[in-house]
Design a binder for these strands. Structure first.
Lengths: 216, 216
DNA sequence: ATTGAGGTGTAACAAAAGTCACCTACAGAA
DNA sequence: TTCTGTAGGTGACTTTTGTTACACCTCAAT
């Protein structure tokens, strides 16, 4: 468990340009640290939400999952951002509608919901932060909707791969075809087929458990 | 143009149970009334947003539209609700990403964005209202995503029809097949086909420019 | 080295949705 | 009335995506 000074430094570094000193101080006093390994599930569908996470480093994948086990990637959360939706879920005592998975070893700070409410009243910068977060998530959901409504699967796949490359900062993606199929809500066979096409076109190289982007 | 007393009464009736008296008073002083006819387009994609609308009566359809003219229904806004997304669009001076259409003659109150900011600082009830609005829109976007990802078109069509019936409070929908196809981002021929199936099953009756729900 | 599990390739087929072509029906204008 | 534009019906076909089945490969555990 990191100490207070450490937490404050992390917050300062990640959110200092948005949030005022006093708030950073308050936050660092009550934050609880959560470290995750890659592929760790942080929130399950149906979980009762008691704490709001802010991502300090790493990246989180947020997906929808229905009763039949169907999955669909919604958006990513990176360092300095939060899932504002969680906030309202907490306040209203509604169970989580989404699944959150760490894509790499990540560091989160968790805050009890009561403080959110207090900060909302007290700090203008916090209000902006939360509103801005909602807005970003909303835009990202719209992008997801656009992709599903207006793009064919091969285009969505390519977008998925380039998004992942940008996010992870590496041309090598350690994914199985099945994992990709899950994220795009398709089937492994179809994804293998389309990946093969991308390989034939010289855009990627396929290896076991790994896809390497060649063009970008 | 309605007078101040009138606007206050409307606000009181629509939002009095959420917003405090003082805020209602302030709102009624600066609100501008906008009345729309059915099918009037309130916001186009790419519009610069200067005022935030609150729906007093009627219902608004919000859809996504891309450069190629493809369309997709996102969600509806009814009396007492607002499109919080507009707020951030205003603040950030970002052009509208969506199209808003009145589904029936509707009454809106429009507020300049500066006041939003002020109210955000001053009124707790306003903060809750805006956050709650964002949250609702977000949930509705997720429902749309669910439908697109996990339902077949015939199921989506039936959901669309029942949603419309609930919203309009009438079993008779005055839509052409083309309008439905636009909302669901499909083609007229396909929608006609699926509607025919629903008619054969005894769920609807098809007339020119009109669909009547028989079961519900 | 053997075994087994998970990952990938691929052919053959099926289902869902979209497209094209052309038809009829209806309503309002000329 | 006839004409014209819009709405809707339908068959034939294509494209896209999903499914099934099975082969082969790799790697780690035994």
């Amino acid at each position: 468990m990191r100490n207070l000074v450490n937490k404050k430094a992390l917050l300062q570094e990640t959110l200092g340009y948005i949030l005022e000193e006093e708030l950073i101080q308050e936050m660092s006093e009550i934050a609880r640290v959560r470290e995750t390994v890659a592929d760790e599930i942080i929130i399950h569908v149906g979980d009762e939400l008691l704490m709001i996470p802010i991502v300090i480093s790493g990246s989180i994948k947020v997906s929808r999952e229905n009763a039949s086990g169907n999955e669909l990637l919604l958006y990513y959360i990176e360092g300095g951002d939060t899932c504002a939706m969680t906030l309202q879920c907490c306040v209203r005592k509604v169970d989580s509608q989404i699944k959150a998975t760490a894509m790499e070893p990540s560091l989160l700070l968790m805050f009890p919901v009561e403080n959110m409410d207090k900060w909302m009243d007290k700090y203008k910068s916090w209000r902006s932060f939360i509103l801005s977060s909602y807005h970003s998530r909303m835009m990202e959901l719209m992008e997801t909707i656009d992709a599903m409504a207006f793009m064919r699967l091969d285009e969505r796949l390519l977008k998925y791969l380039t998004d992942q490359v940008k996010l992870m900062g590496s041309m090598e993606l350690n994914h199985t075809h099945q994992q990709i199929a899950d994220d795009l809500h398709s089937s492994r066979v179809v994804i293998s087929r389309l990946l093969k096409q991308l390989e034939t076109k010289g855009i990627i190289a396929i290896h076991r458990n790994k896809i390497v982007m060649k063009e970008f």
